[in-house]
């Protein structure tokens, strides 16, 4: 389990719910990430694929969004009222915060 006290938190409200991202970065690379919140996403387990793919990836908006969109395609994710842009926004807020 991730130690949340050592991470930066980003909060973004999408139409489908609140997204809280907990992120640690090292030299511009995402070291660890947990995405939580009260949004909806099917299939639910695919959220772990989203964060898994972001570990080791560059922590910039463009790359984040591209990686999340790729996981959406691969896992056939549906998330009413929440999009890859919303997840990206939440993570960016953590990075900027």
């Amino acid at each position: 389990m991730m130690d949340l006290s050592k991470t930066k938190q980003g909060i973004h409200k999408s139409r489908g719910g609140l997204i809280r991202s907990f992120v640690t970065i090292e030299n511009g690379i995402i070291k660890d990430i947990t995405i939580s919140g009260d949004f909806f996403l099917f299939p639910e387990e695919a959220i772990f694929k989203v964060s898994e793919r972001l570990k080791g990836a560059p922590a910039n908006r463009e790359k984040l969004q591209k990686n999340i969109e790729e996981t959406y395609r691969r896992e056939k994710i549906q998330s009413p009222g929440t999009s890859p842009v919303d997840f990206t926004e939440s993570i960016m807020k953590a990075l900027e915060g």
Binding site: G17, R20, S36, G37, F39, F40, L41, E44, I47
Partner: peptide, 26 residues
């Protein structure tokens, strides 16, 4: 499904509540 107990709740005050998680989001 996607929530974290220690983020959402004041766990010290939830001692007499039964807490679980469901398989759906929200």
């Amino acid at each position: 499904f996607f929530q974290k107990a220690e983020v959402e709740l004041n766990l010290a005050r939830c001692k007499d509540y039964t807490i679980t998680r469901r398989i759906s989001g929200g």
